[in-house]
Design a protein around this nucleic acid. Structure first.
Lengths: 307, 307
DNA sequence: CGATGTCCATGCCGACAGGTTATGGACGCA
DNA sequence: TGCGTCCATAACCTGTCGGCATGGACATCG
């Protein structure tokens, strides 16, 4: 009997959530659609998987048996897909390079140039990731290697080499009172609303909110964005301010947004991440070497941020 | 990314077969449908999985990577499905009993009666299997236990208890010259066309053709059937004759078909089969005990076949 | 004790994906 | 050159999925 993995995901979501309405929301489908799908799964399997009641859907014994297996099946398909794609790109001599907006900035181009010099015949395929995905695709197998900002959640499962550090500055709306200052101590920003990354990015988000450098003061979040454009708009529109690496002042200049040096926050580290299993893949290893080589000779961000 | 296992089966078939036309035939779909599906799989995965040529479809490197994983995934889903169904029937106190047409015949009812007596609250769900499936559903998890005729292919992977043996007789069209005889030596049937089971049943088919008792003479197959009704029709219509257990004379009597005792062929054995993993499941164990108990007190087929 | 909220189920409709048949195009072979 | 064997494409039909609106059961609460 055939089945779509989508149905299995639906099933897993309902099983975990315990009710249709919530699961439907999580899955971005309507509740009737889920009702129908779950019912269809039950007829296909030939037995009830849930008992319905006013407080949701509880797994039957058969449902539990299925629920135990489904995550493994989904993970298996996922793995197969990732390996197939990885094989394809390797066969085509393509290195899939993920990068986080603002990760390596000017170093990026020099790294790519160095890589194509060192590996003629290969092509680096650049893929910009949203901030909701701070490993830039390495964690989910969409990229072979990625330029990232540290720290980020899930980092321990990957191999990460730190390339360089870069002071952080603050991005403010032009009209902000503090925009007139040349240098701003971070403590003066404690009570400002911040433009933050999505909640699921955990440690990464906290790091850019400098949650550890507020001496316990709570963070005010004025907006949540996962892309540079939205981020810039949110700041320009006054929803909040944000910390950013120095190089953002050059890469993400925009009317209405100004960058100012900040004291009292640790600098940001840029790294190159890859799956430990790929670490001895020649192309990956070469890319990492290029990163290190470029970083060691980098001009760095001496320009700093400022008016 | 989601996918239907059907697509994976399609892929596996094409990968194995090496061309679309043949694979389409094997899958009982049209070749254009397969073309479209494979193409869709490739766009979904994001890479070519086959290289097309005049002599078919050859796997690319990525295709090979996928082809390595797919059988495991399909088997995994299959297993999950079987376990879920098995769990469901156990929870409902239902024992799924497969039986081959003509397997235990009159003993069947007594076994069921004994089982319901020994396990009140339980229900035996009888499922007749076609001869194309000589384990009657135990091998593929559709039944918890089955009454079968031995030997059959795949029997070694299961636990089988022999219940009783039963002489074999021959079923002939009424008008057949040999129908006038009281007892027929098997050697006189060597050159008759036989009504056989489907080829994929291997040893089982051979056993009912008495392939080992022909001293090397080839078998003539006049018709292939996998159900009693077709089998009776084929015999009545003169497409061939067939060996059958004695009890068939009582259970499958039909105008136009007569049964006669045969000498020179080994008797048939009836057994109860179950998955080794289920052998200590209480309900299964009890059912087997019932089978043994009934078999030991069975009246047997003393009536024999004959006019 | 009716009003409300929260579940899941159902009916209807539009969009789309999958299947089929018929046909085209490339290529090797007699 | 004509034929057979591949795979690709086109046109069409149907079944399924998803969305919206709504219904029904039941608990909770003023």
């Amino acid at each position: 009997m055939d089945i779509d993995t989508r149905l299995l995901r639906y099933f897993a979501a309902v099983a975990e959530q315990g009710n249709l309405t919530g699961a439907a929301e999580r899955l971005y489908v309507s509740q009737p659609a889920l009702t129908k799908q779950i019912k269809q799964l039950e007829t296909r399997v030939g037995t009830a998987l849930f008992v319905r009641s006013r407080n949701g859907m509880a797994l039957t014994e058969a449902g539990r048996a299925l629920a135990e297996r489904v995550p493994g099946l989904l993970a298996g398909w996922d793995l197969a897909l990732r390996e197939t794609r990885a094989t394809a790109s390797r066969a085509a001599r393509v290195l899939r390079v993920g990068f986080l907006a603002s990760a390596a900035n000017e170093a990026t181009q020099r790294i790519i140039a160095e890589f194509t010099r060192r590996r003629p015949g290969w092509r680096a395929e650049m893929r910009q990731a949203s901030w909701a995905n701070p490993s830039a695709g390495v964690a989910d197998g969409e990229a072979d290697v990625a330029l990232v900002r540290l720290p980020f959640p899930g980092q321990d499962a990957l191999r990460v080499t730190v390339l360089f550090t870069e002071p952080r500055c603050v991005a403010l709306p032009e009209a902000h009172p503090l925009a007139a200052r040349d240098v701003i101590p971070f403590r003066e920003l404690w009570d400002e609303p911040f433009v933050a990354a999505p909640a699921e990015t955990g440690a990464w988000r906290d790091y850019w909110l400098a949650a550890g450098e507020r001496e316990g003061r709570p963070v005010r979040v004025g907006a949540v964005t996962d892309q540079p454009d939205e981020w810039l708009s949110a700041i320009a529109n006054g929803y909040g301010i944000a910390l950013a690496p120095e190089s953002a002042a050059r890469f993400y200049a925009r009317p209405g947004v100004v960058y100012r040096p900040v004291t009292g926050v640790a600098p940001s580290r840029v790294g190159v991440a890859r799956d430990p299993a790929d670490d001895d893949t020649p192309a990956v290893r070469d890319f990492v070497r290029c990163c290190v080589a470029v970083a060691s000779t980098a001009p760095g961000g001496e320009a700093g941020c400022g008016p």
